[in-house]
Nucleic acid binder design. Structure first.
Lengths: 354, 354
DNA sequence: TTGAAAGCGCTAACAC
DNA sequence: GTGTTAGCGCTTTCAA
């Protein structure tokens, strides 16, 4: 703080008026204040370089105009764009963001406590869609505390939830490959872990989308066409090697690959390159996600772009609506669609040789 | 908030004691409180599900235990790791982070105002090293308000500043190339804009590092060996095309390239690939930065890894020290060194052909 | 049209 | 050991 904080009383004194009048003027509710008085007060405030103490205001108003953003890990690529979306709409509405990271269920619970102790007006949960326990969410809901959650497994329809249409994305990606003439289409999936804490709905939905599209066209989905890439660069790299080996052994190699996220796709491209498999001529690749470098991989990645920023915006909007209505409104489950962005990695079709 | 917030008075009443005793116990300063009373109070608090109102506490303590993090843009790749570093040490010390984004000088000034109105205890400025006006920083400094700035042009030695050793990085990268036997070494630089708002010290320092290393070995640094890649994927891609053209015209092509950041390097690799220039056989490439995908580009990128997380940690530590000392201490200018991470893109030396 | 005064929930002197 | 009380800086009745 500066030498000595200047308070509303200092301003009142300087302007020669009462504190309440200063308060009225500073809050714009000064219809009943004479122009002279107003000018006097404004001038005094300016001269003293007065900065209203929001903490004191929050204390009496019982509103802080801040919301808590709880994220599972700062490093996750989804975090920055989500925050960007959230920040943009919240700032417009005069809200602030308090950040809290919580990588495991316990610290999530404690983050909620801390944030509520800070008197945040609402909460946004941005997760990796891990299967965290939802007990504390349900408790929040019962207390009618405003919050919305992004990208998490939740079967409770009374809770505000923003999701991504992962199954649709898997289907669209695969359909694209099929339309290009491919019939042997493999997939590099996310972590198919049996550990309940690591299971993500998105992993299985994307995988199911692949199966559905295949089934709709009476195509096979044998297990030698799927490999677990764990959603990481390294995992994608290894999964391809595994897949090439598997398929070489059992039958013929796939001509196309649906890769369930963009990080794995980078690893996939490298493994394919090193194995001498040309993309897209020998192998078409379509991925999910749309990292800024998608157009600059070799070859440029065809992807289903994930509406991440939008997810943040929608979440923030939902929360703001709740907050300004002052009541919980009808809970919404919003599912955001992906969009196909065609680049180089699928080529012009199977029989055009690139 | 819940139905009705439970206050310290409720707890006191329930435990049949005075509020100050409750306060003492809850704050751990209860050496002089009898065990029975303590138990009583703790039990009452638990039963009532009491959650201390930090806002009220902040109000009387005149400390909020939150710091403001001002960033130029959420999308910037440096943002997430910096935040990660800051968050990690701040959380350990019981501090919270309020986020504010400010892409231009004006909104930075207003972000500072807003955050101070929120009574943050300190501020961390994380910028792209743009040449923002520093008037408001100087004002903060005069008021002895605690803050530290990361990665910004500042000649004021009385302000806490974390910088990266960009010149050293440029030099080390180039030295590495020279040690490998290269004598014609080009560079893809950041934006060499004349617009004062876009000029970044890092751009020129990295460039200077390149020149210095060259000069130290009596090598030429002709202008046809440098191209402006604007620090973007697309810019790197185009810059290489330009460079190849330039050098083809004037003399012989460089055998190595120092690329001033990792985003450009991705574009560079692609342009080189498309031009049929093999990396590292025909062209060695070393970049600055160390994105998670560095090991999975084709070929894997040799880089000078930027200590980004560390920058956040150091900044947070500096601020905490100031805060806990309660006085401004001697301002520090800390310069963080880069480290060479050798991968594939420089090969084994010029005359080994890869 | 304005000002005095009562809190918001908490901490910390200061009594007892 | 423990309770009473005076604020922290602000908003908001309520009375003038």
């Amino acid at each position: 703080m500066g030498r000595k904080a200047v308070t509303i009383r200092d301003v009142a004194q300087r302007a020669g008026v009462g504190v309440s009048t200063v308060s009225y003027v500073l809050n714009g509710r000064d219809d009943h204040v004479s122009t002279t008085t107003r000018e006097l007060i404004l001038a005094a405030a300016r001269e003293l370089n007065y900065r209203p103490n929001q903490i004191a205001r929050s204390m009496v108003r019982k509103k802080t105009a801040t919301i808590g953003l709880i994220i599972t890990e700062v490093q996750n690529p989804l975090f920055a764009p989500i925050t960007e979306g959230v920040e943009a709409v919240l700032r417009l509405e005069g809200y602030h963001i308090i950040l809290a990271s919580a990588g495991d269920p316990d610290s999530e619970v404690s983050a909620v406590e801390t944030l509520r102790a800070q008197q945040v007006d609402g909460l946004i949960f941005m997760s990796l869609s891990l299967r965290f326990p939802t007990g504390h969410l349900r408790k929040l809901h019962e207390e009618e505390f405003p919050f919305v959650v992004i990208n998490r497994d939740l079967d409770d329809s009374s809770i505000n939830l923003i999701q991504f249409d992962d199954r649709g994305a898997g289907r669209m990606a695969t359909e694209h490959l099929i339309a290009l003439g491919h019939t042997r289409i493999g997939t590099i999936s996310g972590p198919m872990s049996t550990d309940p804490l690591l299971r993500r709905r998105s992993t299985f939905d994307r995988y199911e989308g692949w199966r559905e599209a295949l089934a709709a066209h009476h195509l096979q989905a044998p297990s030698d066409l799927v490999a677990d890439g764990g959603y990481t660069y390294a995992g994608g790299y290894c999964a391809v090697q595994q897949l090439l080996e598997q398929s070489a052994r059992s039958s013929e190699r796939p001509t196309a690959l649906f890769v369930a996220n963009d990080m794995m796709a980078v690893g996939v491209l490298k493994a394919l390159y090193e194995a001498g498999v040309r993309v897209p001529q020998d192998m078409a690749v379509v991925a999910i996600g749309d990292p800024p470098f998608a157009a600059y991989t070799i070859p440029a990645l065809t992807t289903l772009v994930m509406p991440i920023v939008e997810a943040g915006q929608v979440a923030a909007r939902l929360l703001i609506d709740w907050l300004s209505a002052g009541k919980p409104a009808q809970a919404q489950h919003i599912t955001l669609k992906f969009a196909l962005q065609i680049r180089e990695s699928c080529g012009a079709g199977l029989h055009n040789d690139g």
